[in-house]
Design a protein around this nucleic acid. Structure first.
Lengths: 189, 189
DNA sequence: GAATGTAACTAACAAGTGTTAGTTTGTATT
DNA sequence: AATACAAACTAACACTTGTTAGTTACATTC
């Protein structure tokens, strides 16, 4: 039970506000009001509005990078790797559904960290793509358009942040397995 | 070959800018500059920044509403209805991939039209849900979590605006059929 | 008790925001 | 030539933006 630093509290509250209205529409005065202090006081803990956004997005992006790195080097089947990716997204999103909104919608407002973020994202997509392509090559997956498969899975997984908070009864491991079934086996009988 | 009104030109350019940086981060001066005029001149054609956003979003939302209304009343199978929904999204998004960004990310900045938009969206989702539930009831679809099926399909379809512009070689009818196959039949062999 | 560090405050800044008022320019119609 | 209209302009408004400077209050440490 470690105490949150003041900076962490600011980031946490900002994350919620950023999801509601987007980074650009949230002012430092909005954040300060939500913290119960004045805007100028925020600068005792953070150095800019930018820094808040970077903290939110980069932390999440690195979590995904770590996750897929583990999955990649496992010796499991392609299908099991895809299951693990679904689980990875469900877990990260369950723990930080607000931050995922910024990751998805406000990454273009990163400035110094933009390039780094884009590299992480590209690498992630490339790893994901490769898992699918291996699955096709070794006949675990259907021999159809890999790019569409990637797009379809990734879109669904990236949108989880919209749905997870609305389902209070949510059990992450049940959601993972339901989602895996739908994504991998489809919905037709 | 009808000429575009000045207002339509403003909306078209704004749509592109809104996709790049989001509604809140785009200023009237940005829009004016892209039009080659001064910000004040915009007001000869539109009455507020809000109005531009409303025009973009509501037009698209109504297109989806019309589309699903047609699909709903057709006498086709549930699976064919789902194929038609995929086609509907691919077509609308192909014609207006920029506007779809606003629809997805900036709807919360609608003011007078917010309530109306939310009703359209809720009704659309309800129609979509009902098609899936009927498909389960008549054994066309697997008897598993309808909500997850809806979520998965809708997330993918709503994200099309991100991918379509990146694929120049895009053939809408091929994309529709590839996507339908993946969404409905899954990717596992 | 003096010194230090944390975290708040007030006040203000320069720049940017959406928008309005009033005016000018060019083109088409009478 | 006179009129009307569309569409641009300049100038300014009231307000909001992120951020800085300098100060104060309080607790902890020496």
């Amino acid at each position: 039970m470690k105490l949150e630093t003041r900076k962490e509290q600011i980031i946490k509250i900002s994350t919620i506000l950023f999801k509601e209205k987007g980074f650009s529409a949230v002012t430092m005065r909005d954040i300060a009001k939500a913290m119960g202090i004045k805007a100028a006081s925020l600068y005792n803990h953070i150095s800019s509005k930018q820094e808040i956004l970077s903290n939110i997005i980069i932390a999440l992006a690195e979590e995904f990078t770590e996750g897929i790195t583990q999955i990649k080097k496992a010796s499991s089947s392609s299908v099991d790797k895809l299951n693990s990716i679904v689980e990875l997204h469900v877990n990260i999103t369950s723990n930080n559904s607000f931050g995922m909104a910024s990751l998805n919608n406000d990454w273009m407002h990163l400035e110094e960290k933009l390039e780094y973020y884009l590299k992480l994202r590209l690498d992630y997509e490339q790893d994901f793509r490769q898992i699918i392509e291996r699955g096709i090559a070794n006949h675990e997956l259907q021999d159809s358009n890999a790019e569409v498969m990637l797009f379809s899975m990734l879109s669904t997984l990236r949108s989880l942040y919209i749905w997870i908070p609305n389902k209070e009864d949510l059990n992450p491991s049940k959601l993972s397995s339901d989602l895996s079934r739908v994504l991998l086996k489809g919905i037709i009988k």
